[in-house]
């Protein structure tokens, strides 16, 4: 028995020691390495963009660059950066989450002015994804509060997309109730009463709706809705464009504190600027993000339907900081709705 034991123990020991030695994550050969901390639905976009950027970077500078990515709910990702995740650039769902990082001194408070278009190289909006043939006849926001309609959206507290969803519904309700906030609150409240599953991120909600078959309508990023159709086939889902939606500007920024410590500022700047180039804009459009560049926008005009869009700077919201405070802070409107 002792003999057997020695063998077993030796084997276990060898396995335990050899594993890290043989497979330890070795520093890869890239000259520069960037970490892009992003939100949920940008996985496919940045997979493609990172590859393209690495090629141009190599061609222009002769240096190899490796771009690592982390994805998750936008608020959660901001939290990780605040807690020390060493992001060189953040590409999040909304400005407030980057503001939160800036508040902790990781980047300058005026970060949004450093790049064109509010530092948002692409935009998106919120649309409805419904089951093929639209069996519940969902056409606009007011169809979402009807009894028996199940609405899928992620949690506005953790998901950026969900905050856009919520605000778009709010904007619609204000418009149709003559600006009456109490009525808007009641409207959004009854909308959320129809939500059976509240995932923490946009991608979780998409999976719940598409793969798990829960709900009649998914409030989705436009790009996420297109992607779902692409992934699961046109015969499964339809996209419904509401009469009014919101202009979602997912911003990008360099995290000053991190790039300065790591000495990666130049590469990080080149990376974000490349998002604004024709090539970058094209990749965004191919991944169903609305490009800012007028020329590329024209080229992809047919892809993106025309929608009446309000912006976050609309007086009804007054910018992200105010909107966040009013609606999503502790005890804010969303909490009041959910406490009921």
């Amino acid at each position: 028995m002792s003999f057997h034991f020695k063998h077993a123990a030796a084997a276990a020991l060898v396995a335990a020691l050899a594993a890290p030695l043989g497979f330890a994550p070795v520093a890869r050969a890239a000259d520069v390495s960037l970490l892009n901390v992003s939100y949920d639905p940008t996985r496919e976009l940045y997979q493609q963009f990172n590859k393209a950027f690495a090629e141009t970077y190599k061609a222009e500078t002769g240096k190899t660059i490796e771009i690592k990515a982390s994805h998750g709910g936008s608020g959660k990702q901001a939290r990780s950066v605040i807690d020390g995740l060493e992001a060189d650039v953040v590409t999040l769902a909304l400005a407030y989450d980057i503001d939160a990082i800036a508040d902790k001194g990781f980047l300058a408070a005026d970060w949004q002015k450093r790049l064109p278009d509010n530092s948002s190289p692409y935009t998106s909006t919120i649309v409805f994804l419904v089951r093929k043939g639209n069996p519940k006849g969902i056409k606009d926001w007011n169809d979402l509060v009807k009894p028996g309609v199940q609405v899928i959206t992620p949690n506005p507290k953790t998901s950026g997309g969900a905050r856009w969803n919520y605000l778009a519904a709010w904007a619609y309700a204000l418009k149709h109730n003559g600006g009456d906030e109490a009525k808007a609150k009641a409207f959004v409240g009854s909308l959320f009463k129809n939500v059976p599953v509240l995932d923490t991120g946009a991608r979780g909600s998409t999976v719940t709706f598409t793969e798990r078959g829960v709900g009649d309508v998914l409030l989705a990023w436009e790009n996420e809705a297109f992607l779902s159709k692409k992934e699961f086939g046109d015969d499964k889902f339809d996209i419904v464009i509401p009469s009014l939606s919101i202009l979602a500007e997912p911003p990008v920024a360099i995290v000053d504190k991190n790039v300065d410590r790591k000495g990666t500022r130049a590469a990080a700047e080149a990376y974000l600027k490349a998002l604004y180039t024709k090539a970058g804009q094209k990749i965004a459009a191919e991944n169903f993000y609305r490009p800012r560049d007028p020329e590329i926008a024209k080229e992809y005009e047919k892809v993106f339907p025309k929608i009446d869009l309000v912006t976050i700077d609309d007086p009804a919201f007054g910018g992200w900081r105010k909107a966040q405070k009013t609606h999503f802070s502790d005890g804010g409107v969303f909490d009041q709705i959910y406490a009921n």
Binding site: G73, G75, A100, N155, L198
Partner: peptide, 23 residues
């Protein structure tokens, strides 16, 4: 779970959510 607040949200998940909300 479905993770619906007040219905199917467990305490450990709420800890994670609070963490993600900077709370």
């Amino acid at each position: 779970a479905g993770n619906l607040p007040n219905v199917s949200e467990i305490a450990p998940l709420l800890i994670v959510i609070r963490l993600e909300e900077f709370r």
